[in-house]
C-alpha cells in the first residue's frame, strides 16, 4: 500500500480519487432519479455508444439484405399479391369505420361529451441488443431528437407494449407492460369495469377486482385512459383465468398480452393530440 510522503499532495492519493469519483456517481444517480437533471449527460454519452449499437446490429442488417437479394422473384410476387389482398380488406374495414365514426361524433355532440382527440403516431424499429438489467426493457431507434418523452405510450398492431422509460439522444428504452414494476390502468371491454393490470414477468395480473364483478376468461382488456399516459380504448390483453384471492376479499385474474412481446420488430409511438 502506498503511504503518503510529505511532498505528495492529498489529491494524488488513490483514496481521494476513489472518493471523488464515487461522489460524482452518487450525484449523477440522484440527479437522474429525481429531476432529470442528468439528461444532457445521458444525451451526450449516447452519441458515443451509437457505433457500438451499429456494430451489434450489423449482422442482422446483412442477413436482411442478403435475404432480399437471394429471394426468388416468384416468392416476392406472391407476397405482393397477399399484401394487396390485405390492403383491400383493410380499406373495406376503414370505409365501414368512417360511417361509425361519424355516427359516434354526432352522438357525442348530442350528449355534450368530449370527443376523442386525434393521435399522432410514428414508427420505430426495435433493436435486438441484449439488456442485462433486471428490468424488461427493449431499445427502440428513436430518442429525444425525434421528440420522444418519458412515459410515452408504445404499441404495435396487436396491442399495447409498454411505455418509454429512459430517453437518450437517438435511442430510448421502453419498459414492457409485463415488467414487475409496471402498472397499467385498464378497463374490461365487455363490462366497462375499471381496474389496474400489474406485470408479473410473463403476463399481466389483475388483482383488485371486486368479488361481485362479472369477469370471465376470454374477456378483452383495453386501456382505460386514466393516468393520462395511454389513450383510451387500446387493446392490451385477453383474460386467461380467474380466481379468488386467498383472503377472499378480491377476485384475481391473469391476462395474456395480445402483442407478442418476445418477438417485436417494429412499434408505434403515440403522441397525445393537441
Amino acid at each position: 500500500m502506498e503511504s503518503l510522503t510529505s511532498n505528495q499532495k492529498v489529491t494524488q492519493s488513490p483514496l481521494f480519487k476513489f472518493l471523488v469519483l464515487e461522489f460524482i456517481c452518487l450525484t449523477l444517480m440522484i440527479a437522474d432519479k429525481n429531476h432529470q437533471l442528468a439528461q444532457p449527460v445521458r444525451n451526450t454519452l449516447s452519441l458515443a455508444v451509437i457505433p457500438l449499437i451499429k456494430i451489434i446490429e450489423w449482422p442482422q442488417e446483412l442477413f436482411d439484405i442478403t435475404q432480399v437479394a437471394l429471394s426468388r422473384q416468384a416468392s416476392l410476387i406472391e407476397e405482393n399479391t397477399r399484401l394487396k389482398e390485405q390492403l383491400l380488406d383493410a380499406r373495406f374495414k376503414v370505409q365501414q369505420n368512417v360511417t361509425l365514426a361519424a355516427e359516434n361524433e354526432r352522438l357525442r355532440a348530442m350528449l355534450n361529451a368530449s370527443g376523442n382527440s386525434p393521435l399522432a403516431t410514428s414508427v420505430a424499429f426495435v433493436s435486438n441488443i441484449n439488456q442485462h438489467q433486471k428490468r424488461q426493457h427493449i431499445i427502440i431507434d428513436q430518442g429525444s431528437s425525434s421528440k420522444v418523452f418519458t412515459g410515452q405510450a408504445v404499441l404495435n398492431l396487436e396491442g399495447v407494449i409498454g411505455q418509454v422509460d429512459v430517453v437518450s439522444q437517438t435511442f430510448s428504452h421502453v419498459i414492457l407492460i409485463t415488467d414487475t414494476e409496471h402498472a397499467l390502468p385498464v378497463e374490461i371491454l365487455r363490462t366497462g369495469l375499471r381496474t389496474i393490470a400489474y406485470g408479473d414477468g410473463q403476463k399481466l395480473s389483475l388483482t383488485e377486482i371486486p368479488t361481485s364483478a362479472d369477469i370471465q376468461p376470454g374477456d378483452v382488456v383495453v386501456t382505460s385512459g386514466f393516468g393520462n399516459r395511454f389513450p383510451r380504448g387500446l387493446q392490451v390483453a385477453t383474460i386467461e383465468s380467474t380466481a379468488v384471492s386467498p383472503d377472499r376479499t378480491f377476485q384475481t385474474a391473469v391476462a395474456a398480452p395480445l402483442a407478442r412481446i418476445d418477438r417485436l420488430s417494429e412499434v408505434f409511438l403515440v403522441w397525445p393530440g393537441e
Binding site: 460524482i24 444517480m29 437522474d32 449516447s46 437518450s168 428504452h173
Partner: peptide, 12 residues
C-alpha cells in the same frame, strides 16, 4: 447509457 440504468450505477 446502453443498459438504460440509473446514470452512475455501473460507474459506481
Amino acid at each position: 447509457v446502453l443498459m438504460g440504468s440509473l446514470l452512475g450505477k455501473h460507474g459506481m
